[in-house]
């Protein structure tokens, strides 16, 4: 009896291995964590699915990995925010769109030992953090994972003419934005964050020690791009890219987060495309 039961279980498992249903009418999209973790992509996907009956499946990774998956042809679309990295992968990508933007924020302890609040621009803020770090008064936590935010952070250090790598006050976590923010909160350290992840965690009470200390200047702009991978001709995937920049898609992006956070998490690209393309080209250099 026992043997028959075991054999039956084995048979059912093996049969289901062969027969497990595949999702129909779906396409793969690799995406940066900030778009997904804030919940924006799920809302966009739901609206798209209702209208077109096709479903995007998201692979949620950092921008570096998202682009690598695109290069390998493992996904059909990729949504990223790292212009200089995107350029390195341009031979594998096509149909570039810019669909949203917002601003990175420099966050840190309320006491602000480096005086970032009084900085005139972002590079000066970074210089102040560097000096306070060298003086043993401040810590900085870096993503260190080749994500869009990390790439941005590195470019800001470069603009400031400084190299913090290997300094004792400069900690690379090698993890996602939320984890990095929580580490920064626990260490009372400075870090660079996308505004959406910070606001979400702040609202949930996870970051009692951290405040936005500097934001809003054009150097801190964060541009979200979408691409189709060369060789993928899935009509639904093409339609999804168009949908992101359609009036309906842009409306969802513009209003997402207003109710929950009192301010939008992302700005739609509509009406500002020329300016954004110019800034993007600047950042990609």
């Amino acid at each position: 009896m026992r043997k028959e039961l075991l054999a039956l279980i084995a048979l059912v498992l093996l049969a289901s291995f062969a027969l497990y249903p595949r999702p129909q009418n779906s396409f793969k999209v690799s995406t940066t964590t900030s778009l997904y973790d804030t919940g924006l992509l799920d809302v966009l996907a739901k609206a798209f699915e209702e209208k077109y009956g096709a479903k995007p499946e998201f692979l949620v990774v950092g921008s570096g990995q998202a682009l690598r998956l695109a290069k390998d042809g493992a996904v059909c679309l990729t949504l990223v925010h790292a212009p200089s990295l995107e350029k390195q992968y341009s031979e594998y990508l096509t149909d570039h769109i810019i669909f949203a933007y917002n601003y990175f924020v420099i966050v840190g302890p309320k006491e602000d030992p480096a005086g970032v609040k009084d900085a005139r621009n972002a590079t000066e803020a970074f210089r102040k953090i560097y000096e306070a770090g060298e003086a043993g008064k401040a810590l900085f936590v870096s993503r260190g994972d080749m994500s869009g935010t990390h790439v941005k952070e590195l470019s800001l250090w470069k603009l400031a003419g400084l190299d913090p790598k290997g300094r004792p006050w400069y900690k690379e976590t090698g993890s996602g934005m939320a984890k990095t923010l929580i580490i920064a909160n626990n260490m009372k350290a400075y870090t660079l964050s996308d505004v959406s992840t910070f606001l979400k965690l702040k609202r949930d009470g996870k970051l009692p020690n951290l405040e936005i200390l500097y934001s809003g200047s054009e150097e801190l702009i964060n541009i979200y791009s979408g691409y189709r991978v060369k060789g993928c001709e899935d009509p639904n995937a093409k339609e999804f890219l168009r949908f992101l920049n359609s009036t309906e898609g842009q409306k969802i992006i513009a209003s997402y987060g207003k109710e929950e956070f009192g301010r939008p998490l992302f700005y739609p690209a509509e009406g500002k495309l020329e300016w954004l393309r110019e800034v993007w080209r600047e950042l990609a250099r």
Binding site: L59, D72, G73
Partner: peptide, 15 residues
């Protein structure tokens, strides 16, 4: 992966 030796099986990202 799709451009890898067994890519044609289409097994990537399946259970």
């Amino acid at each position: 992966c799709p451009r890898c030796p067994l890519g044609s099986l289409g097994l990537l990202y399946t259970p």
